[in-house]
């Protein structure tokens, strides 16, 4: 049997909202270590990797070595509309069961339950190498969200140029060119902090459609962390409630290759 209780149900709601437009169906891989999810978008340009450690849950039980729960994202996000912001959520599945039961509770006054039919999803697991990035940028999620949204008005691609001292986001579109520079700002109040760590400068082009899609996970944490290496996928990481110990939602995006 699998049973997990999360007092802050909105965390799961935000995770699903963050990935629902990228992936149609996903597998929840449950083990005694927690929940993992790995899925590609339908064009195989990006990859979502979720890790929820048991620390994020008030209660966590998985009797088998592993269980795979196939979820349709549209249905899950529909179910999570039932979940109020202050609700706790309990997920429960029998060992050979065909459903995942969600229970949303606020105190004992209001209890909602929905049994979701599980799907059999054929998914390929890719090996994500442990990468040390040449450039790491930590910036407020609201800033990331705003840059991606504003730049999408001018073009389809955005160049991220990370150098010592700061990071420049630029777009070159039909109506003209624009850029936004964020300075390395370690000594300001936490919510405005921008930390740019550079071993060697990196400049890469990415599709804004995907960068904007990842921004839907912004409510999950205050800061987002970008990892860049030459000619490798960009890593966009949201730590759950800004605590890596609880887990993270990571997106990887393949770069545009210059012709």
């Amino acid at each position: 049997m699998f049973e997990a209780v999360l007092s802050n149900g909105s965390t799961l709601k935000k995770i699903f909202e963050g990935i629902k437009d990228l992936c149609t169906d996903v597998n929840f891989d449950v083990s005694s270590e927690g929940i993992k999810l790995q899925a590609m978008d339908s064009s195989h340009v990006s990859l979502v990797s979720l890790e929820l450690h048991t620390d994020v849950f008030e209660q966590f039980r998985c009797d088998r070595d592993s269980m795979t729960l196939g979820l349709n994202m549209k249905s899950v996000t529909q179910i999570f509309k039932i979940c109020g912001n202050d609700d706790s959520v309990t997920m429960r599945a029998e060992d050979e069961g065909e459903t995942l039961e969600f229970t949303f509770e606020k105190g004992e006054d209001r209890v909602s339950t929905f049994e979701l039919k599980l799907m059999d999803i054929d998914s390929e697991h890719l090996g994500i190498p442990d990468t040390e990035y040449q450039c790491n940028v930590k910036l407020p999620c609201s800033e990331y969200q705003r840059i991606c949204r504003d730049m999408a008005g001018f073009g389809d691609n955005m160049t991220i140029d990370c150098q010592k001292g700061g990071v420049t986001f630029s777009v070159d579109g039909e109506v003209g060119k624009g850029k936004i520079f964020l300075k390395h700002q370690p000594n300001v109040e936490e919510k405005h902090k921008v930390i740019v760590t550079v071993k060697e400068g990196v400049e890469l082009d990415f599709a804004l459609r995907y960068l904007n899609n990842f921004a839907k996970a912004a409510p999950l944490s205050d800061h987002v962390q970008l990892g860049l290496n030459s000619d490798t996928p960009l890593s966009v990481r949201f730590d759950i409630e800004d605590k890596a110990t609880l887990g993270s939602l990571k997106f990887f995006l393949a770069p545009k290759i210059k012709e």
Binding site: V45, E124, H125, G155, D205, T232, A254
Partner: peptide, 14 residues
Amino acid sequence: GGTQASIMSFFGKP
């Protein structure tokens, strides 16, 4: 704007 690479060309099967 360059050619979009596939994520599968970077992350192979484990």
